[in-house]
Write a protein that binds this DNA or RNA. Structure first.
Length: 570
RNA sequence: CGGGGUGUAGCGCAGUCUGGUAGCGCGCCAGUUUUGGGUACUGGUGGUCGGAGGUUCGAAUCCUCUCACCCCGACCA
């Protein structure tokens, strides 16, 4: 491709609404343009990157036995009512009404559509397992789209759905997809971790996220420094700590703490370290108030509360609800004598606490010398959020915290959709059974952004070669020197013939502009042709990812690039 | 949805307080010049000042309403 023909409008300055590096660089490099909040145009360079990612996905999924389909984006409400999600999904589901008054939505995901497709035509155990996937634009009306492509409303996604005869077979499929995912992200040149994850709104019983490690990631994950345990912090389990205990403290005493609400304030005021505090959160569980206790230096994980109680919703109580439950303003709740709640739940770390401090359920007052067990009772469980430095639940190692960008997610769904939607088959005994499903997503456009987040420098993008829009860029440095232009044209033709995706910067620009744009766009290999070196029959070869500038004979360029390719493949 | 902020040329911004009919840098077009890290100079193109209504002799500027976008939070996962 010639730069004079390529529609890649590069910018010197990033638009002011760009927030993260990937967004700034993709906009500046002429890859994307924003049309509306969370909705982007993909220009030719971006389209090429997306296609290369798609190709890797298709190769690996086809090899794993999946088949590609294309499903509608506009979906009728009926199938969502049947699965129970029409009422459940919330405003994130963009709903439409057609001219006849029929209700539809833009597909945020395709479980309903695929189940409708499969149950219609698949009746026999002989047809299973079946695994279908598509690569398609999805729409989720996010309340707040942000971070460019990383959390848009419209985005490109690969979604796959598997159907098996039983759990054992479905787990084999799950593992095959898990391994295909590892190959896909590795081939894309990403540094990632597969982590145990919550199943969330999709539902199901087993789930892993594939997280690209990047400081700008929205997700917090922990990974053991010794074994291979890794999990989203929302999901991460913590081992039950050794029972604390110790001598009984003095009798509980109420002390005045005027205006001191946060652990930090009270800790400073009373001169007690945060780990001697019992933090008391009032939460509303399916409409009923509960107290959740965690140590002052810990954070509660409300998802764990939700799972423990099997609740549909758990949220932090409003100020009014706190007052109703504790009789005191927000900031002074405590477990001692707490009557206004349906139950008191406490993290394991609370069990051994002696001589602790906590809210007094009175305005401007706290209690000290509080002993767990003596002064209050609670139901103990693992309720806190894991973090950097916490013990691993599987071995003696320590958990380390990372930020991640979720680029893939695999779910073991079981019969969550197949049972209510009657997606059944007949087994060998002629018995009707629900199919056992799995679903598997990859954020294709998000991979593009994540790759940039993980691979850039101050000058621009540094694409992993496997997903770069072009492999080589040729820069003729003096367009007024016929021999330079001629050599560049010849090399361009030769490299194309040798099977390289090559870009020729044939613009009548100065050398500086060409270098700067080539670095911004991030093409892995750069061949600069200048009159001085050319007189000796040489050109300059440089890899975007680093390394020194190499002087290479013009005739050797193709073999030098082939060597670079081979090096990469190792 | 709550809080905060911004809308003026393709991009980045000044002008708004104190009303007088729109400007700077970059880009783009033409020419000259230059040619190994965003050359220099000259000339030029380009704007319903987010939109509607109002006040006024006169509104980018003041008032009312409205839309869009961004940030923090909640939400989602």
């Amino acid at each position: 491709m010639r730069m004079t023909r390529l529609h890649a409008p590069t910018l010197k300055e990033a638009p002011k609404d760009a927030e993260v590096q990937s967004q700034k660089m993709l906009v500046r490099g002429g890859y994307i343009r924003k049309l509306a909040a969370g909705i982007y145009d993909f220009l030719p360079l971006a389209n090429r990157v997306l296609r290369r990612i798609e190709t890797i996905i298709r190769e690996e999924l086809d090899a794993a036995g999946a088949q590609e389909v294309r499903l509608p984006m506009v979906q009728p409400a009926e199938i969502w009512e049947e699965s129970g999600r029409w009422g459940f999904y919330g405003p994130e589901l963009l709903r439409l009404v057609d001219r006849k008054g029929g209700n539809f939505c833009l597909g945020p995901t395709h479980e309903e559509v695929i189940v409708e497709l499969v149950r219609r035509d698949v009746r026999s155990w002989r047809a299973l397992p079946l695994n279908l996937y598509q690569i398609q634009t999805k729409f989720r009306d996010e309340i707040r789209p942000r971070a460019g492509l990383m959390r848009g409303r419209e985005f490109l996604m690969k979604d796959a759905y598997s159907f098996d005869v039983d759990d054992a077979s479905a787990l084999v499929t799950y593992d095959a997809m898990y391994q295909a995912y590892e190959r896909i992200f590795a081939r894309c040149g990403l540094d990632f971790r597969a982590v145990e994850a919550d199943t969330g709104a999709i539902g199901g019983s087993r789930s892993h996220e594939f997280q690209v490690l990047a400081d700008s990631g929205e997700d917090a994950i922990v990974s053991c420094d010794t074994c291979d345990y890794a999990a989203n912090v929302e999901q991460a389990e913590l081992p039950v700590p050794a029972a604390g205990g110790g001598p009984e403290s003095a009798a509980v005493e109420v002390v005045a703490t005027p205006g001191q609400r946060t652990i930090e304030e009270v800790s400073a005021f009373l001169g007690l370290p945060a780990e001697r505090f019992i933090k008391t959160l009032v939460v509303t569980v399916d409409g009923r108030p509960y107290a959740v206790l965690v140590r002052g230096d810990h954070e509660a994980n409300l998802l764990k509360v939700k799972r423990l109680l099997g609740a549909a919703s758990v949220e932090l109580a409003t100020d009014a609800e706190v007052v109703a439950a504790t009789g005191a303003p927000v900031g002074f709740a405590g477990p001692v004598g707490l009557k206004g709640v349906d139950g008191i739940l406490a993290d394991h770390a609370i069990a051994g606490l002696r001589d602790a401090a906590t809210g007094a359920n009175l305005a401007d007052a706290h209690r000290i010398h509080v002993d767990a067990g003596r002064d209050f009772d609670a139901r103990y469980a693992d309720l806190r959020l894991a973090g950097d430095g916490d013990p691993c639940p599987r071995c003696d190692g320590r958990l380390r915290g990372f930020r991640g960008i979720e680029v893939g997610h695999v779910f073991f769904l079981g019969t969550k959709y197949s049972a209510p939607m009657r997606c059944n088959y007949l087994d060998e005994a002629g018995q009707e059974r629900p199919m056992v499903m799995g679903c598997y997503g990859i954020g294709v456009s998000r991979i593009m952004a994540a790759a940039v987040e993980q691979n850039h420098d101050e000058r621009g993008i540094v694409w992993p070669a496997a997903i770069a829009p072009y492999e080589v860029v040729i820069l003729p440095l003096q367009m007024n020197k016929p021999e330079v232009v001629e050599a560049a044209e010849q090399l361009y033709a030769d490299l194309a013939r040798a099977g390289f995706d090559v870009l020729l910067d044939d613009r009548n620009e100065r050398a500086g502009s060409k270098f700067i744009d080539a670095e911004l766009i991030g093409i892995p290999y750069r061949i600069a042709i200048g009159a001085r070196d050319l007189a000796e029959g040489n050109v300059e070869f440089k890899q975007r990812a680093g390394g020194d500038m190499e002087r290479v004979a013009l005739a050797e360029v193709t073999s030098r690039l082939q060597a670079a390719r081979a090096e990469r493949a190792r």
